[in-house]
């Protein structure tokens, strides 16, 4: 990470160029923040129907929704701009990143950094903070650590999905919406207790095949010291850092293979 300073320079330049048009930036910031507020509001509208979701009461639901919202917001702010890869692959503009003496992936994220997405991070922090405050947590050092680390491991998992989704563009440029099913779909999935999805293939695949159970639901159970009603072993509730690491390995491996398939068309 000796290059960190360089990336900060790039990010700052990107912020300068985006905030040049103040009005547009304000609109983008407001829109982006309001749209994610809508997602969180949806959870509470549905909660209000019967005063619970999937057998969990208010504090647990708030904690899960807050964890999911914060993890996704961080991932979206840092990795969400990976989506731009599709455009760069289509136009051949990805060349410019490969010609500089820096990691192409890190540049992709830094060069397209979208400051408007930061509003969502603040929002996620507020909801998660509320969740932690309202939930009856028996604090001990392990739980404090878990509470701090979980939004980050969740963000890493979402971030890997953003990167995997973008990397697919090296083979299939028009794949845009398929990636959305797992990134935005994953955000929706993780906003609710896992118990709501029943025991069918869909729920199992999203929860354990992709690993979404480890973003918010399982760590929230660990914080609340509650077992999973569907019988997931207790120790799995602490395994989010491990699954995040697996996701990182998968995403970087795919990226390495993908970049070799870059065709640099467009000129």
């Amino acid at each position: 990470m000796a290059d960190l300073g360089v990336y900060l320079h790039i990010v700052r330049a990107q912020i300068r160029s985006q905030t040049q048009y103040r009005m547009s930036f304000a609109i983008d910031l407001a829109a982006s923040t309001l749209i994610s507020a809508l997602d969180i509001a949806t959870v509470f509208v549905l909660f209000s129907v019967s005063g619970g979701l999937g057998g969990f009461g208010g504090p647990a639901v708030l904690l899960i929704a807050g964890l999911s919202a914060l993890a996704f917001a961080i991932a979206d702010a840092v990795f969400g701009n990976a989506e731009r890869l599709r455009e760069l692959v289509r136009s051949g503009g990805f060349d410019a990143l490969l010609l500089r003496p820096l990691s192409a992936l890190a540049q992709l994220l830094a060069v397209n950094f979208a400051p408007r997405r930061v509003g969502r991070v603040v929002q996620g922090m507020v909801v998660y903070g509320l969740g932690l405050a309202v939930a009856d947590i028996d604090w001990n050092p392990a739980r404090v650590l878990l509470a701090v680390v979980t939004p980050l491991t969740g963000a890493v998992m979402f971030g890997c999905l953003f990167i995997i989704g973008a990397t697919v563009a090296f083979w299939w440029v028009e794949s845009g919406e398929v990636a959305n099913a797992f990134t935005y779909g994953g955000r929706d999935f993780t906003s609710y207790p896992l118990t709501m999805y029943g025991g069918g293939f869909f729920g199992r695949f999203f929860a354990f095949g992709i690993g979404f159970a480890f973003v918010a639901y399982l760590p929230a159970l660990a914080l609340l010291d509650r077992p999973d009603p569907m019988g997931v072993p207790d120790w799995l509730r602490w395994c989010s850092p491990l699954t995040a690491m697996i996701a990182v390995l998968a995403a970087t491996a795919l990226w390495r293979v993908g970049i070799r398939h870059y065709r640099s068309t467009g000129s």
């Binding site: 129907v49 019967s50 979701l53 398929v178 099913a181 609710y192 709501m196 999805y197 029943g198 869909f202």
Partner: peptide, 23 residues
């Protein structure tokens, strides 16, 4: 790609709504 995504979200929303109705 779009159809695929619609179907995934269909599953997701369907389970969520059914669970809300059940509770």
């Amino acid at each position: 790609a779009g159809t695929f995504t619609n179907i995934v979200f269909g599953f997701l929303r369907c389970y969520i709504m059914l669970s809300v109705a059940a509770s």
